[in-house]
Design a protein around this nucleic acid. Structure first.
Lengths: 242, 242
DNA sequence: CCAAAAGTGTTATGTGTACACCCATGA
DNA sequence: TCATGGGTGTACACATAACACTTTTGG
């Protein structure tokens, strides 16, 4: 039992960061995937990622990967990046031992990337990832399918007790925008009046701007809001049914 | 921006697992620490940990480390082990680049280890770790102080929405035992009758055995329970005040 | 009998839910 | 004017909190 500490010089592994970037586009929760052009899984889709550099902290590496694949002038406002989970199955990379630290990023709807972007990436609706027959064979390279599933699950639960939903909205936003985030991520319908009361009575979630949006297509113009200071919510936004 | 993927053979690092083992002893939440006898931080206290082996998954490595340092015949009943977070600051190990995957373990009160155990370990009350002046200089080696703080925070919040509190109790247990877990971990006082109703009305949290414990020191003997099947609670056990 | 701890009942207060209704805008 | 969507009010079900009260044991 003491063997492990005595040969501490033994094992080394490659360390990568992979980022599950989620956004809402066309009323769908989608994840950013890029086309691989390297030895393992060449040509297949996978998450943006890369090896950490020698003197780089994990969070910094995740930010670098993100800036690299989403384009430089990306964050118009908002967004969120946090560590998700670490994946280290011995055979997850066919070449050699690689441990991957997955990150979860949430951003307001970004423009299509298929066009002039340096990296060949696209937004993949998460519904197209999870066929009802479990995780038998994922569309994505490595264990990236599991990462996306864990990331979506994390996002769903964090909407409840944190102000994370606002990371999906570009400022300024209306309560309808915010409500649409909850409805799409959770896959439920929320009562409009009750949602308004709940959000406005939760301290630090949003701050009213006093202005109103221009009416889009008939209907009363909605008031505009920006993110509030709170990160954790009291009381929480509980999702119905469950 | 493409440089990272092109020199994919570049960086390697040592990968360790460190386990934050929490238990309740003498009405105190405590963490298992072991005395180091290796090059960095020799003689100081640190978390039980070790390098992963060549063909070993991360969860397996954490279980091995746990069995190694807590003794073989340890789990009398209950217990829980889950991944906590990964720490990878470039200078966290003075020798070379080491990335550590921290795990969180919760177990019923284990016996004192100071005596005949193979490893020199002890239970450190977490109150003795966090002096009011922040994390200036921790008692523990590496960034293990931050790991413990993150683990305690995780345990506190997971008590709310999961059945994790039962992992601290050895079966069979009384509702007073379970209530003491919440009170000690959260540092609050809970109303006895309301707690009973809440626990019994939460499906899958506990199952009554129909038996009663022997009265300890006066007072009516309590009914005995074991863990229920649920992992997530609906509705949640919300902690007061906050 | 008394103290101590377990378990039951009752009531006030707050939170979530459902739905009826009013307001402001475009067509 | 009507349709559409934003915003307000209200009644009901339900959960929590506080506390009085009964039950069962050891001393």
């Amino acid at each position: 039992v003491l063997a492990t500490r005595q040969r501490e010089e033994a094992t080394t592994a490659g360390v990568t960061v992979d980022v599950v970037v989620l956004t809402i586009r066309h009323s769908e929760l989608s994840v950013l995937v890029v086309e691989r052009d390297g030895p393992p899984f060449d040509g297949q889709w996978g998450l943006p990622g890369g090896f950490i550099e020698a003197d780089e902290d994990l969070d910094v590496a995740a930010g670098r990967v993100l800036a690299c694949h989403a384009g430089p002038g990306q964050p118009p406002s908002g967004g969120h990046l946090e560590q998700l989970r670490t994946y280290g199955a011995p055979d997850r990379d066919p070449r050699r031992r690689v441990v991957s630290v997955a990150y979860l990023g949430l951003f307001p709807g970004l423009p299509d990337l298929d066009g002039g972007a340096a990296e060949p990436g696209r937004w993949l609706p998460i519904d197209e990832l999870a066929p009802p027959a479990g995780r038998g064979s994922s569309i994505l390279a490595f264990d990236h399918g599991a990462m996306v599933a864990d990331g979506v699950e994390r996002a769903r639960s964090k909407l409840e007790y944190s102000s994370l939903a606002t990371a999906f909205c570009e400022e300024p936003f209306t309560l309808a925008d915010l409500r649409r985030v909850y409805e799409i991520v959770w896959g439920v319908h929320l009562d409009v009046p009750n949602f308004r009361r709940k959000v406005r009575s939760t301290p630090g979630l949003v701050e009213g701007l006093g202005r109103r949006a221009v009416a889009a297509s008939g209907g009363r113009p909605a008031e505009l809001y920006r993110r509030g200071g709170a990160r954790l919510l009291h009381p929480a936004m509980l999702r119905p049914c469950l």
